[in-house]
Design a protein around this nucleic acid. Sequence first.
RNA 1: AGGCGCGUAGCUCAGAGGUUAGAGCGCCUGCUUGACACGCAGGAGGUCGGUGGUUCGAGUCCACCCGUGCCUACCA
Length: 884
Amino acid sequence: MQDPGPEPNRGAGGRSRAFAVPDKPALEGLEEKWRARWEADGVYRFDRSKRRNEIYAIDTPPPTVSGSLHIGHVFSFTHTDVIARFQRMRGQEVFYPMGWDDNGLPTERRVQNYYGVRCDPALPYDPSFVPPASPPKPPVSVSRPNFIELCAKLTVEDEKVFEHLWRYLGLSVDWSLTYATIGREAQRVSQLAFLHLLERGLAYHIEAPTLWDVDFRTAVAQAELEDRDVPSAYHRIAFGAGGASPAVVIETTRPELIPACVALVAHPDDERYKPLFGSSVVTPLFGVEIPVRAHPLADPERGSGIAMICTFGDLTDVTWWRELSLPVRAVIQPDGTFRRVTWGTTQWPSTDPAKAQAAYDRLVGLSSQKARARIVELLRESGALLGDPRPITHAVKFYEKGDRPLEIVTSRQWFIKTIEFRERLLERGRELRWHPPFMRTRFENWVNGLTGDWCVSRQRFFGVPFPVWYRIGADGAVDYGSPITPAPSSLPMDPSSDAPPGCSPSQRGVPGGFAGDPDIMDTWATSSLTPQIVSGWERDPDLFSRVFPMDLRPQAHDIIRTWLFSTVLRSEFEHGTLPWTNTAISGFVVDPDRKKMSKSKGNVVTPLALLQEHGSDGVRYWAAGGRPGTDTTFDPGQMKVGRRLAIKILNASKFVLSSSEPRGAVTEPLDRGMLTSLARLVDESTTDLDAYEYTRVLNRAESFFWFFCDNYLELVKSRRYGDHGHEAAASANTALLAALSSLLRLFAPYLPFVTEEVWSWWQPGSVHRAPWPSAGELIGVAGGRDEAGSAALDAAALILGEIRKKKSEEQRPLKTVARHVRVRDSKERIALVEQVRSDLTAAGLIERLDFDAGEFAVDIELAPAEAPASAEAAAGKLSGEPKP
RNA sequence: AGGCGCGUAGCUCAGAGGUUAGAGCGCCUGCUUGACACGCAGGAGGUCGGUGGUUCGAGUCCACCCGUGCCUACCA
């Protein structure tokens, strides 16, 4: 530990010389200067020789590099950096890696648009392919390996831009720990963890109805859904009498799914339909005889109280279909259009196959939306449509990145079990320390609302492949029952190019051979393992033992249901523990209308331009004003305030460091009182930062600092210049240096550039590796706590304020001499102020100062304006004390 | 529809049951003071969303309501 006390640079002969303070200190250029020095000196390099309890490990959110960094990133990453810097100064070795989320669909989309290409997995690799100079229309088709090359190329370029911004902002990341979610290590961890789940039966694959985006042509997970209100309409449709049953009227918003209808359903207690249960009715147009069934999920209040069950219109259909053991008649293909079907077969029965075929053929090849319009015409012609459709607006599930409503398509997908572990996940949520605590509710809402296991397979290209192969039987049929898995040592692998052990590549895709799993993993299946990826899990056991479970997961509240949830789940399965002990949830940056700042709303601001305009310290000041979990208004005004604070630190420091001598014991009550107040601030700050209350610390430190500048510095100035003797000056000097040292360290996590700049004028090493200030060191310099001195400082500042007010009201210069000041106050407070009389009379330019007991009041008589006493003349007869 | 936040000066926000509710920005007035004009000093500006309750005492605690944002649900 270095000496926390102020120590001037010493010349070769042991003679002290002045500190290296520039004549005109400025903020300009500090970002470039210090980020280069920090990198060269390895200030933020992680020392892995430390033990677990000496390490503070952060599971940094990897930003999606396919987008651009926006002000929200700057905001939340600053919060984490403040915590990281605090922990580092407290003596913890901070493990602070950076990750880039470059895998998955967002990257694919960016590559498609940026280069004007489209992936066609059927094409062969073209080693000489060069992307067109500007994106052509229509896009060029390229092979999957070529496409992945382009993804890799573009993400590397994007990541350079991101890193530059982060360094400019001053994040104290160890850049040698950077990872990418598409990188080899992330792939190895994802595949290995998946194989463990497979082995334990926690991952499984089945052919089942799955939420499906028809544009991206992939399955999606519950966590990736969002509801959007869209216009729709209720259609009243008559189902024909079948056997003994009368006709029934249903209401539906999706009449196009009548060919996929496999039953009608009503509530078991619904008297209107009780007589029908067990009988059957006939679908209009297609003449399919379907049963009428009872199920408690049917809502008697909605529509006509009886609904059609289609395969599949929504998730309730899936539930009914499963629980009532109904057949499948699927009509929608993966691209969202109606597929070709032959009526009159066992699967597609009809009382009039020719009529059914004729009606259905008019739907083939259409999207849901177009098929709906077409079938409404057909229903109207046939008389089955009763009245006109009744327009409504209702919420429909969309893939969050998608443009059309989700369909439910039956396909073979991988799932990770979740719902049977609901209780244990809730328990882990209660163990985790949430900052702020109320964010846990979001987690619980999500876990309680889970409807099914987590679908983790995606029918896409740029991502982590599932590390499994399947045997192909002699008849050419793929056997999904017992997948072949690779040896863990061979990971990462790609089953589309690697062959299973003991097989030759020529056996791929032929009868008796093998087939690779064609899918890639959900991006969250990788992101849920960031703690394992950064910690060297199953690769570097020594590192793993030192940093896992980690200390902090910082993230925004919108991804509690995805990233936080899935990370807790994976850690529970793999390790039976939480992945970290704390989570700090940052809010959003909102514009003054309380709308989230986002690209789609067109209200984003380029972060680098802001950093250049207001300085990184200024922007960080604004960001640090956002408490955990609280949405914060984008406010350049606050950035200006932060910038002004940084400038003030430069100038006040210049004054404090304007002379390094004399030095000596802190004996003056004013000095001891100031140090006592500062010690109190330091204690409170440490407690608050331990509780992740970084905003309160900044606010308190700031207001202390302005008081320090406006009052203490003014009160002590004359004495410090030697007007009251050598010892009195030495007391001031020593106190000033101690205070500056502590204040710089207090501000260092927030304003890393300006504090480092000032620190470099007079202290060795980096302020960011200096020890966090302590009350003890300040009280030590003060020679003990001096609460009376602290109160005297406050009282003197109050009187000084009255004198300034008088001068301001009379529109006189502040250097105007106060001929006579009479202070009325309690006896106790008068006694306090008497202790600092000489400082007060010097700062207030008071010629005569009297006290009376009584209610607080200050009477001031200023020197007449006509006969201005010069400042020099006034200073000569200021106090009764002799000049040295 | 349920849940979780938020509502205090024109704006952005502090106020952990106890003097007369605070800060910064903005606005107005003055001041080139030996660190700082990227500065200094001062001033004006409030029915603390509403109603009721608990309490000696409520911006703070409770209930209901209003507004606002988000989470979850609602999809026949």
